[in-house]
Simulated scan of single mutants.
Amino acid sequence: MPRPILATVHTAALRHNLDRVRRAAVDARVWAVVKANAYGHGIERVYEGLRGADGFALLDLAEAERVRALGWRGPVLLLEGVFDARDLELCSRLDLWHTVHCDEQIDMLAAHKTLKPQRVFLKMNSGMNRLGFAPERFGSAWTRLNALPQVDEISLMTHFSDADGPRGIAHQLEAFERVTRDLPGERSIANSAATLRHASQTRGDWVRPGIVLYGSAPDFPQHDTAHWQLQPTMTLATRLIGVQQLKAGDTIGYGSNFTADGPLTIGVAAVGYADGYPRHCNTGTPVLVNGVRTRMVGRVSMDMITVDLTPVPDAKFGAEVTLWGRSAATGAVLPIDEVAQAAGTVGYELMCAVAPRVPFAPADE
Rank of each mutant, 00 (worst) to 15 (best):
M1W: 11
P2I: 12
A7K: 04
L14Y: 07
L14N: 08
N17W: 07
N17V: 08
L18G: 10
V21W: 01
R22P: 03
V26P: 01
A28I: 05
R29Q: 14
K35R: 13
N37C: 12
A38K: 09
H41S: 15
G42H: 09
G42D: 08
I43W: 06
A53M: 04
G55V: 01
F56V: 01
L61M: 13
A62V: 10
A62H: 10
E65G: 10
R68W: 03
A69R: 11
W72Y: 04
G81L: 02
A85F: 11
R86C: 11
L88N: 07
R93G: 09
W97T: 06
T99W: 01
V100S: 03
D107S: 11
A110Q: 09
L122N: 00
S126Y: 03
G127F: 00
L131A: 07
L131Q: 04
P135H: 12
A141I: 01
V151A: 02
E153L: 02
E153A: 02
L156A: 00
T158F: 00
F160I: 05
D162Q: 15
D164K: 08
G165Y: 08
L173G: 07
V179N: 11
P184Y: 15
P184S: 15
E186F: 06
A190F: 06
A190T: 06
T195P: 02
A199M: 10
S200G: 07
G204R: 01
D205H: 06
P209V: 03
V212N: 05
V212T: 13
S216R: 00
H223W: 13
A226H: 14
H227F: 15
Q229H: 12
M234C: 13
M234A: 12
T238R: 01
V243S: 00
Q244S: 09
Q245L: 01
L246R: 02
K247F: 03
G249F: 09
G255A: 13
G255W: 09
F258Y: 15
D261R: 14
G262M: 11
P263N: 15
G267I: 01
V268E: 13
V271N: 03
G272E: 08
G272R: 07
Y273P: 00
G284K: 13
L288P: 06
L288I: 11
V289C: 13
G291W: 07
R293W: 04
T294K: 04
G298R: 01
R299S: 15
S301C: 12
S301M: 15
M304R: 15
V307A: 11
V307M: 10
T310F: 08
K316V: 14
F317V: 07
T322W: 02
R326E: 15
A332W: 10
A343C: 09
G344H: 08
Y348L: 10
L350I: 13
V354F: 06
V358Y: 04
F360C: 10
P362E: 10
P362Y: 10
A363F: 08
D364C: 12
